[in-house]
Simulated assay, not measured.
Amino acid sequence: MKPSYLSEEAISTFIESAFAEDIGPGDYSSLSAIPSGKTGHAKLLIKGNGIIAGVELAEKIFKTFDSNLQVELLVKDGDEVKFGDIGLIVSGPSASILSSERLVLNCMQRMSGIATLTHRLTEKILHTKARLMDTRKTTPNFRLMEKWAVHIGGGVNHRFALYDMVMLKDNHVDFAGGIEAAIAQTKAYLKENNLDLKIEVETRNLEEVAEVIEIGGIDFIMLDNMDYATMRKAVEMVGDNFKTEASGGITEETLVDVAECGVDFISMGALTHSVQSMDISLKAF
């Protein structure tokens, strides 16, 4: 099942905006060099190993630009691919293939890199109850696709944006005047504005964990930058009262140790902010 943020309207808006950025008044290279009426074929070449993502999006991009383009999908999102595989074949007006090529590749290369990393890291912690989550550390105007790629790779999407969940981080707590004040003011605001949102509170030490547990009325406790011993103690203190999320500087090397502390979720900004794209190209034939 697709995440709720992947509405047809949201995807269409992204595609239209991306085309406006890349093509503007016209792709003059293709318009000038390709004879009117010329048709052709091109295949999507996979030049890396991993999890493919953005296939469904690619079809939408081609069809949005020119409904006369025909797309034959040879793989689907989430499939494992290897060097030399062909992802799809697009046929139709040659100029249209060329004009939409770069947007398809830009999206699929990055999305496949994210899905591949997410899948690899998720596999490492399958023996624990922890689930891998993304963050808001995404590329402006490309969050939709980056979070979609995390989902395709088997990860969990955290809140999509600032409006669909309350997260009281250290700066919120400090500016509000402490944990108790931050939670109280948040709950009053949500009630006054008839908002039904989950609340997560970041904690930096066991004293703050204990304070959040005592105050209650929230849904998630974030354990930020804690060492393993402290994290295990925090998980023990929280018990089944709230869900726990480990966050802060977690790497592929430390991921398993963190998961084995017993947390419910592990958030990693690296899933989206420093991933290596998969090498993919489009070749006429």
Rank of each mutant, 00 (worst) to 15 (best):
M1G: 14
M1S: 12
K2S: 04
S4C: 09
S7T: 14
E8P: 06
S17N: 11
A18E: 15
F19N: 00
A20F: 07
E21H: 03
I23M: 15
P25F: 13
S30Q: 04
L31C: 08
I34M: 08
G37S: 05
G37A: 07
T39C: 08
G40V: 05
H41D: 05
L44F: 09
I46Q: 00
N49V: 07
G54W: 06
G54T: 05
V55L: 15
L57C: 11
A58L: 04
E59T: 14
K60C: 08
I61L: 06
T64C: 03
D66C: 09
L69D: 13
E72M: 03
L73C: 03
V75F: 07
G78M: 12
V81A: 04
G84E: 15
G84W: 09
D85C: 05
I86K: 10
I89K: 06
S91P: 15
R102V: 14
R102C: 02
M108T: 01
M108H: 13
R110A: 03
M111T: 09
T116C: 11
R120C: 14
T122N: 15
K124G: 05
A130W: 02
D134Q: 14
D134A: 08
K137E: 04
F142D: 03
F142W: 14
R143M: 11
L144E: 05
M145Y: 12
A149Y: 07
V156E: 07
N157K: 02
R159I: 09
A161Y: 04
L162Q: 10
K169C: 06
V173R: 00
D174M: 05
F175N: 09
A176P: 08
G177L: 05
G177K: 05
E180V: 06
A182G: 12
T186E: 01
K187E: 13
A188T: 12
Y189D: 07
E192R: 09
E192Q: 03
D196I: 07
L197H: 10
E202P: 01
R204S: 14
L206A: 08
L206W: 08
E207V: 12
E207G: 04
V209F: 04
E211N: 01
E211V: 08
V212P: 00
M222H: 05
M226F: 05
M231F: 13
R232C: 10
A234D: 09
A234T: 02
V235E: 08
V235Y: 07
T244W: 13
T244C: 14
T244F: 14
A246E: 13
S247F: 10
G248C: 03
D257C: 01
V263M: 09
V263A: 01
D264N: 15
F265Q: 01
G269R: 13
G269Q: 15
L271E: 02
L271V: 11
S274L: 12
V275H: 01
Q276Y: 11
S277E: 15
S277R: 06
K283D: 11
F285H: 09
